[in-house]
Amino acid sequence: MSSEQAPTKGQLAPVIRATDHNGTLVDTESVRGQRPVVVFFFPRAFTVGCTREACAFRDSYSAFETLNAMVVGVSADSPQVLREFAQQHKLPFHLVSDTDGSLRKLFQVPRSLFGLLSGRVTYVIGRSGRILDIFNSQLSWTEHVNVAKKAIAAEEAAT
C-alpha cells in the first residue's frame, strides 16, 4: 500500500510496532493469524470525548477479551500523559504515543472539523490482518466500541 493511499476494508492493515504507555512492545504483526486487533485513534487524552471513548473501550474490555482481541489506542500525547490517563481511568489496554504523527500518516487518519482536530477513527482488523471495518466519527464516541465488537463477532461467527 502506498503511503498516500488510505487503507480500506479487505486490505491488509498497516503494522504497528511501537512501545505503549507502560514500555511494553506492541507489535500487531506478531498477532496476525492469532487474534483480531482494534486500533482506535483519538485526538487528546483527558478531553471529554476522548475520555468517554477510552472509558467505553474499558467498560467493554471483557467483551474484547472474550473475542481474544487486542485493543490499542493511539494519540499524539506523550507516553507520560498516556500513562497518567491510563492510571486515572484504569484503562486495561495499550495506549501508544504518536507524537511525530507517523502512525496517523501510516493509517491515513484524516483531520476533522476544518482540519483543526486530529481525527477519531477506529480500524477493526481481523485475525488474518485484513481490515474488517473502519469507523470515522469525531462525535459518536462510544459507537467506535460497538462497531468494533460487531465486526469481530461477525468474523468469529463466520469461522
Rank of each mutant, 00 (worst) to 15 (best):
D27F: 06
T28A: 03
S30C: 12
S30G: 10
V31G: 14
R32Q: 14
Q34T: 13
R35T: 14
R35Q: 15
P36S: 12
P36W: 13
V37I: 06
V37P: 00
V39P: 00
F40L: 01
F41S: 06
P43N: 01
A45R: 01
T47K: 05
T47F: 02
V48A: 12
V48C: 09
V48F: 12
G49L: 09
G49C: 14
C50K: 00
R52H: 15
E53M: 10
E53H: 09
A54R: 06
A54E: 08
C55G: 04
A56H: 09
A56F: 10
A56E: 10
F57G: 10
R58G: 14
D59N: 14
S60A: 13
S60N: 09
Y61S: 03
S62V: 12
A63H: 13
F64W: 00
E65W: 05
N68V: 04
M70G: 07
V72H: 08
V72L: 09
G73N: 04
V74A: 14
V74S: 14
V74G: 08
S75D: 05
S75P: 07
S75V: 03
A76V: 11
D77W: 01
D77Y: 02
D77I: 01
S78D: 12
L82W: 06
L82K: 05
R83I: 10
F85I: 01
A86V: 02
A86Y: 03
Q87N: 15
Q87L: 11
Q88N: 11
H89E: 15
H89N: 15
H89G: 10
K90S: 11
L91S: 04
L91A: 06
L91R: 06
L91I: 04
P92H: 03
V96K: 07
S97G: 05
S97M: 02
S97N: 05
D98C: 05
T99M: 13
G101N: 11
S102R: 07
L103S: 01
R104T: 01
Q108R: 08
V109N: 08
P110N: 02
R111Y: 10
S112Q: 10
S112G: 11
L113K: 10
G115W: 13
G115V: 05
L116F: 15
L117T: 06
G119R: 00
R120Y: 01
R120Q: 01
R120S: 00
R120G: 00
T122L: 14
Y123W: 09
I125G: 02
G126T: 01
G126C: 05
R130P: 13
I131S: 00
L132E: 09
D133Q: 02
N136G: 07
S137L: 12
Q138R: 13
L139S: 06
L139W: 06
S140W: 11
S140Q: 15
T142H: 13
E143T: 11
E143G: 07
H144T: 06
H144K: 04
V145G: 04
V145N: 08
N146Y: 04
N146E: 15
